[in-house]
């Protein structure tokens, strides 16, 4: 088959009823500033880890809040904790504590 340079994407159904939302609830409880997130992506835009790896804070927290936490452990391990994302966040989300709370919830600390 000819390759046209694009592929068929897999269905992306978010199974809110089946997904595990407890982790998101834990993180939001301990760092409620994440509720303020407007998904602008400034964090990922400034992130030195995002520039050279697949890690993106915006995507990671979005997936977490949907309960799609399969790759969360691997994602959060990429963070360098440099704190640029905190400084650029227009909504004052304490991103570093979000990372820390995820790490606590996943027993990574």
């Amino acid at each position: 088959m000819n390759s046209f340079g694009f592929e068929i994407q897999k269905d992306n159904t978010i199974e809110y009823d089946k997904n595990d939302l407890s982790l998101a609830a834990f993180v939001l409880k301990h760092e409620p500033s994440l509720y303020n997130c407007i998904q602008c992506g400034s964090c990922s835009g400034s992130c030195p880890a995002s520039a050279i790896s697949s890690y993106q804070f915006r995507k990671m927290q979005l997936l977490m809040r949907r309960g799609e936490i399969k790759n969360l452990r691997e994602d959060v391990a990429h963070c360098l904790l440099c704190g640029k994302c905190i400084l650029v966040c227009p909504r004052g989300v304490n991103t570093r504590n979000v990372i820390r709370q995820i790490r606590i919830a996943l027993n990574m600390n």
């Binding site: 890690y55 990574m108 600390n109």
Partner: peptide, 15 residues
């Protein structure tokens, strides 16, 4: 200090 905390910075190899 926490020496057992889990991180994965392997991607820095590619810099």
């Amino acid at each position: 200090h926490n020496s057992s905390a889990e991180v994965n910075h392997d991607y820095l190899r590619h810099v």
